[in-house]
């Protein structure tokens, strides 16, 4: 491993930038993401920063059961994120639609139909600790030695 790569690994492990997008959630999961920012859970001590800008994001957190308005918007948003990138589905809705996935409703879950999802966190909503531990366990798999393994 080159010196440059080890330097990149060291920096990336302490600088994970997160953007979250609500594709038709009831806001419950968004509140749990918000709780991660609070002093009790404090994601910045792990080097996770929320910018909510896809251009500088590494991790995209997706909540919600995919309403029809996002049909033409989520894929362009995913394409805007620079590599290496990863998408995490938060809550039951992006996985199965859960209670909203009934006959005569317009939601179109799972979100993995539309963009590649690397990890799914079940729960309605999941605990903040579950969200943090997922991001932390996923980050080394995706970002470590990215330049060397992508070929």
């Amino acid at each position: 491993m080159s010196l440059l790569q080890s330097l990149k690994n060291a920096v990336r492990s302490r600088s994970i930038h997160v953007a979250y997008v609500n594709v038709g959630s009831c806001n419950g999961c968004d509140i749990e993401i918000l709780a991660c920012l609070s002093p009790r859970y404090d994601i910045e001590q792990y080097g996770i920063y929320v910018h909510n800008n896809p251009r500088e994001a590494d991790v995209l957190l997706i909540t919600g059961a995919f309403s029809p308005q996002w049909e033409d918007k989520l894929k362009p948003l995913w394409d805007k994120i620079p590599h290496p990138k990863v998408a995490v589905a938060i809550g039951n809705c992006p996985i199965s639609g859960c209670v909203f996935n009934r006959p005569e409703t317009l939601v179109d879950p799972p979100v993995s139909k539309h963009i590649p999802i690397a990890a799914e966190i079940p729960g309605c909503p999941p605990r903040p600790t579950e969200i943090i531990s997922t991001i932390l366990s996923l980050a080394p798999i995706i970002f470590k030695d990215y330049e060397e393994t992508k070929k």
């Binding site: 039951n92 199965s96 859960c98 209670v99 079940p122 309605c124």
Partner: peptide, 27 residues
């Protein structure tokens, strides 16, 4: 159960057992 497909009672090894599907169960 209020969530579709969250819990099913299935027979495995001659014993009935409820099984929870994560991703559907809302706890």
């Amino acid at each position: 159960c209020p969530a579709p497909d969250a819990i099913t009672v299935v027979k495995r090894e001659e014993i009935w057992r409820p099984e929870i599907t994560k991703g559907h169960c809302i706890r």
